[in-house]
């Protein structure tokens, strides 16, 4: 279980996260919603050690992650799909996957499992990743993170700019991972996607989790979507 307790973080003198607390449980999807600039991406970057927490704690199964160098965090089993994918564009699909496998010394077995989730990538292993379509790039970004066999998967707006069929594929993949016990934190703006996957929805406003709802009987008309996301 990943726990964030009373996190303060920001860039230089600009504080972005204020007393933010969040929990991601195994086999559950925690969706994070909020307006632009609310601190969603900063929260994920703080978990990954890319932004150092000034106060508070981040633990994975009671192992502290806060204060670790950024390259140590993924080795504890945190997979990250950043906003905009951030693939190594000049490297091939196979090489991007290899980078993912190296993180936690995973083998061909993991590679085969990941490619079974995204068969289209298997056909494009030798292709330079920057030449893939947007949907394929997103598949690769998720596949690369899954090569860590993560205990926790962080995704930052994975459906952004994708066609509906690709969104469906990504949703099905995340539901498969959910069934295997992966704890997922999903930053997402699409209410339909959130409602179809989330166990909990955390609404972030002004750098803190303002409200958390269990995803039971929620609809797009639930007022919190309007209040915190403006949809």
């Amino acid at each position: 279980m990943l726990e964030l307790k009373a996190i303060n973080a920001g860039y230089g003198n600009v504080q972005v996260l204020r007393n933010l607390s969040l929990t991601a449980k195994p086999g559950q999807v925690t969706c994070v919603m909020g307006r632009n600039g609310a601190g969603k991406t900063t929260m994920l970057r703080t978990i990954m050690g890319q932004v150092q927490a000034q106060a508070g704690s981040i633990t994975l199964n009671n192992t502290p992650l806060h204060g670790l160098p950024a390259h140590e965090v993924p080795r504890h089993g945190i997979g990250y799909v950043p906003q905009g994918r951030r693939l190594f564009g000049e490297l091939t699909v196979a090489q991007n996957i290899e980078i993912g496998l190296m993180t936690r010394h995973k083998t061909a077995k993991t590679r085969d499992y990941v490619l079974s989730l995204f068969p289209r990538l298997r056909e494009r292993l030798a292709q330079r990743s920057s030449t893939l379509s947007g949907g394929e790039q997103q598949m690769l970004a998720i596949a690369r993170a899954l090569c860590l066999e993560p205990a926790v998967l962080l995704l930052d707006e994975p459906t952004e700019g994708l066609q509906p069929s690709m969104i469906t594929l990504i949703r099905e993949t995340l539901l498969t991972l959910k069934a295997t016990g992966v704890a997922t934190i999903l930053v997402e703006q699409r209410v339909d996607a959130v409602l179809s996957m989330a166990n909990q929805i955390a609404f972030v406003s002004n750098g803190t989790v303002a409200e958390t709802l269990e995803n039971t009987n929620l609809t797009p008309a639930t007022p919190q979507f309007q209040t915190y996301v403006g949809i």
């Binding site: 050690g49 950024a70 080795r75 000049e90 980078i99 993180t103």
Partner: peptide, 12 residues
Amino acid sequence: LDRTTARAFGIN
């Protein structure tokens, strides 16, 4: 290519 993302994949 991308040192920030490299760190996110365990590269020191």
